[in-house]
């Protein structure tokens, strides 16, 4: 429905590290969009609720559910192939000041998509510094820790296979 969104394919550039200050605005926005797309709904609710005065916004599109084709790459030459479709919810909102925020999230949580889009719109306004420090940075760190933890648990179960060279 949303066309071939290249989630893990050729267009993916290395994710910017949360501990490093992103340089140009596109890099910065890519970083917070990635964090918002993975943020759980309760945390997004809490981040928005903490903003005073409460922001007003209107929906430009959605939230609506659709499918995107996830592409992978084969080993070696890296030729792209279609891995399969995943469910995605997208939403676009606008603030009264004209700032437009987008969100594409995995799954079918309408509210989460709308809040993520709202955060994206707010991060493009003068609220950036506050919202970034209070929410994006914290959430990025939490997600990095969760990733590390998952990797640690997986690494603990690693089995090394050795191939014996045949003699003669």
């Amino acid at each position: 429905m949303f066309g071939g969104l290249d989630l893990y394919g050729t267009s993916m550039t290395p994710r910017s590290r949360p501990d490093r200050e992103p340089q140009d605005p596109t890099t910065a926005r890519r970083h917070w969009l990635a964090v918002l797309a993975r943020a759980p709904r309760e945390r997004l609710e809490a981040a928005i609720a903490a903003i005073d005065p409460a922001p007003a916004w209107s929906r430009l599109r959605g939230p609506e559910i659709g499918m995107v084709m996830v592409r992978g790459r084969t080993g070696g030459d890296g030729a792209p192939f279609n891995l399969g479709e995943m469910t995605v919810t997208r939403c676009t909102v606008a603030l009264p000041c004209g700032s437009v925020g987008h969100a594409y999230i995995a799954g079918r949580d309408h509210r989460r998509a709308e809040l993520a889009a709202l955060c994206d719109a707010l991060l493009q306004t003068s609220l950036f510094a506050r919202l970034n420090a209070a929410f994006v940075e914290v959430e990025a760190r939490r997600q990095a820790e969760a990733r590390l933890e998952a990797r640690r648990r997986a690494a603990a179960t690693r089995v090394e296979f050795h191939t014996l060279a045949r003699m003669g």
């Binding site: 430009l60 599109r61 606008a94």
Partner: peptide
Amino acid sequence: MLRRGFADPV
């Protein structure tokens, strides 16, 4: 400023 499309798209 970007406006929305149909109120009830479908």
